[in-house]
Design a protein around this nucleic acid. Structure first.
Lengths: 199, 199
DNA sequence: ATCTGTATAGAACGGTCTGTCTATCTCGAC
DNA sequence: GTCGAGATAGACAGACCGTTCTATACAGAT
């Protein structure tokens, strides 16, 4: 049993399916993409979808779950070698800046999923947001910010607004503005704690 | 020809249709609501929809157009008697705070529409955002803020983030936080201009 | 009383959706 | 060579989609 090196090493159907579905869901929305289209673009048989994921809903959950895990991993990779907690926070914006154009400025995929399925509580979406908030709290605490909990909520709010604006305007400008605003906000609350300590 | 006063004055089908559709679109999303359901809940005949609006798409556009006009009117009514430009700005957040629970914390309906139809450029959505920004610029200028253009963009970004957070958390807390953050931001840039003028 | 415009109910159409099923094929293990 | 798992293609079912159509009922104006 050897892994073919020269050939494109045709990947198993389940993986091709998830890759194709992820790209289509992100670009056009979940409800707007039917399984027929996913199957055609992935070059995969219908039965493979239902044996691997059980249903379209199963595929959707696999998409969101992997999205969460990958986004965390991408941030973790990006902050390797960065010690400054503020720069680590701004990395969230930097990653969004880098990926927004390639995703047609579709904004936050978690927000999009929550919009398309307003009645469901989607576990990976909630988990991702909680991770983001917890990470921000820890970093702001390390940065010496006054009231890290409140500031973390505010930074996340700015992050949400930045991605929403990017979707509206099909531009990275709102993300840039959000980055600047977050940086200034953090700088201000660092000063506040310093001033308080001085007094 | 008299207007009946005592009876509920059964309103014409086109209006009932738009009211029902607006409520359903807002709560469950546009794609998720079929015309059958709208017709049933409005108690209106099928043909009335197509004679009044031409198609479901026509109904959707009427919904978004009226939403824009009503939101502007609602803000205009709310700021009657309020002179302070900062309080006028915060009225945007106050209105969102008041209406969010009744709308099941579905966030910004313009953002939701943009999410559900990523390929279209939806005119009322763009117009509403432009009106919001222009209004903010004028008020911030009157408030004596440094760089009203930039600050207006930032306030709108905070507003977007507040509504997005409200949708995620099914709570008005993010809107409250956005209001506070916007108030502090405006106060800071007012101080900046005063300080600059003093120097 | 008749005409007209508008609302009604409901059948029907073509299309698309998710999901199931059958039947064939490929390929690695033994 | 044989077997079996997994992939393939494609037909099929049943529901729902938006839309068009016919036929009927009812109001007000003439």
């Amino acid at each position: 049993m050897r892994t073919p090196v020269e050939t494109p090493a045709k990947r198993p159907p389940a993986e091709r399916l998830l890759d194709t579905a992820s790209a289509l869901f992100a670009e056009f929305g979940i409800r707007a993409v039917g399984v027929d289209r996913i199957l055609a673009e992935a070059g995969v048989a219908r039965a493979s979808l239902y044996s691997s994921y059980g249903s379209k809903d199963g595929l959707v959950h696999a998409y969101l779950d992997r999205l969460d895990r990958r986004d965390r991993a991408r941030w973790n990779d990006a902050v390797v070698g960065i010690d400054d907690p503020v720069r680590r926070i701004l990395t969230f914006f930097d990653l969004a800046l880098a990926s927004a154009p390639g995703k047609n400025f579709r904004g936050c995929q978690y927000a999009n999923a929550a919009t398309e399925f307003p009645e469901e509580r989607i576990e990976p979406v909630l988990a991702h947001r909680e991770w983001l908030l917890d990470t921000l709290v820890g970093l702001l605490d390390r940065a010496g910010a006054a009231d890290p909990g409140l500031t973390a909520e505010r930074v996340r709010l700015i992050y949400d607004g930045a991605l929403a604006g990017s979707k509206f305007e099909h531009s990275i400008e709102p993300i840039r503005r959000g980055r600047d605003l977050a940086a200034e906000l953090i700088e201000a609350v660092r000063g506040a704690r310093r001033a308080h300590a001085d007094a």
